[in-house]
Computed example of a mutant assay.
Amino acid sequence: MPDERSTHPSEIRRLLGDGDPSPVTVINPEGHSPFLLIGDHAGNAIPTVLGTMGLTEDDRHRHIAWDIGTAQLGDELARMLDATFIHQHYSRLVIDCNRAPDRADAFPETSDGSTISGNAGLTAEDRARRIGEIHEPYQRAIADAIEAKGRDTILVSLHSFTPRMDGVDRPWHIGVLHDGANDRFALAMLRTLEARQHLIVGDNEPYVMDDTDYTVPRHAFSRSMPYVELEVSQSELARNGGVARWSQVLTECLRACQSA
């Protein structure tokens, strides 16, 4: 059985302590590429004061806690593209940075059969601490990078998905998500990936970009900014050389779409 969380959330005055990682990391902030890479779910850390949140060690390392492989993929793409990569360190189970903070599923109480007891009975103050110390610093870093890069920025949101969910296989190697708002670049990426006939490419699969998404709409839609949200199968990234292979594929496709 997992250990109980060390402190009830309502007893916490500050969420992140001196030994906890920063909520956001910016890789290659001076990158010259117009691409701005982001990783909403790249980390699986839990603030020390929250203990395990009732999670087993296995749960903390499986797909419910984070998008496995996206930190490594983003690091490699940042190097190959000379792009800036912004990602946050904390598990989506602490707060989901790709959800509006006023949504209930920003603080999930269950996920794919697991109970997250550390999210039961959260008060408004509990939520406010997670928003103020994790969610907003991450979103602010993205806004600051866009402001610094200027109007030619292309937002690339990196995610990964489990190849089997709720007992259903997901055959796609990669999915391209878009929502009809200035989605010319996203659709160009979809066509470019589909042209690689060895790939199974999902068009708004295995997820649909809709009103559950937060980061891309917040930053790209209001600015009419070109964007693409990519979902790569975790089985692909976990293969020997998988991150290197997908970094090469995505670098080639992103550059082709930029040129076009």
Results as ranks from 00 to 15, higher is better:
167 G>Y: 05
227 Y>P: 07
213 D>R: 03
145 A>Q: 12
71 A>I: 04
95 I>G: 04
171 P>F: 08
33 S>P: 05
220 A>F: 01
158 L>A: 07
79 R>D: 15
146 I>G: 05
120 A>T: 09
232 V>H: 10
178 H>K: 04
134 I>W: 10
162 T>L: 10
80 M>F: 09
244 A>R: 13
57 E>S: 14
76 E>Q: 15
183 D>I: 05
59 D>Y: 02
78 A>I: 15
154 I>W: 02
236 E>I: 12
71 A>G: 06
45 A>D: 09
40 D>R: 03
232 V>Q: 06
112 D>Y: 12
17 G>T: 14
258 Q>G: 02
201 V>P: 03
40 D>V: 02
4 E>W: 14
28 N>T: 09
17 G>M: 12
108 P>T: 14
210 D>V: 02
102 D>P: 01
114 S>G: 03
194 E>K: 13
4 E>Y: 14
249 V>E: 13
174 I>Y: 04
37 L>S: 03
225 M>G: 00
132 G>W: 09
228 V>H: 06
191 R>L: 12
239 R>G: 06
185 F>N: 03
56 T>W: 14
10 S>G: 05
181 A>G: 00
18 D>I: 11
197 Q>C: 03
44 N>A: 02
237 L>M: 11
237 L>V: 15
69 G>Y: 08
185 F>R: 05
33 S>E: 10
247 S>R: 02
196 R>H: 01
238 A>H: 07
238 A>S: 15
13 R>T: 14
207 Y>C: 09
51 G>D: 14
161 F>C: 06
155 L>F: 08
72 Q>V: 04
115 T>F: 13
137 P>C: 01
136 E>W: 13
199 L>P: 12
111 S>I: 10
144 D>E: 11
37 L>Y: 00
187 L>P: 00
173 H>I: 12
121 G>P: 07
126 D>F: 10
237 L>S: 06
245 R>S: 10
163 P>Q: 02
149 K>V: 06
83 A>R: 08
157 S>K: 11
56 T>P: 15
164 R>S: 12
252 E>F: 05
71 A>F: 06
74 G>N: 08
224 S>G: 10
186 A>P: 03
21 P>M: 14
46 I>S: 01
208 V>H: 00
214 Y>D: 05
46 I>P: 02
86 I>E: 00
15 L>W: 02
16 L>T: 07
51 G>Q: 15
50 L>G: 07
111 S>P: 00
247 S>L: 08
150 G>Y: 06
161 F>A: 04
161 F>M: 09
140 R>K: 13
33 S>L: 10
100 A>D: 12
224 S>M: 09
258 Q>Y: 10
158 L>W: 06
69 G>R: 04
61 H>Q: 14
155 L>W: 10
140 R>G: 04
117 S>N: 10
193 L>Y: 00
251 T>I: 05
64 I>W: 11
145 A>S: 08
149 K>T: 09
208 V>L: 02
32 H>K: 14
126 D>L: 12
116 I>D: 09
190 L>Y: 01
22 S>Q: 13
51 G>N: 14
210 D>Y: 03
23 P>T: 09
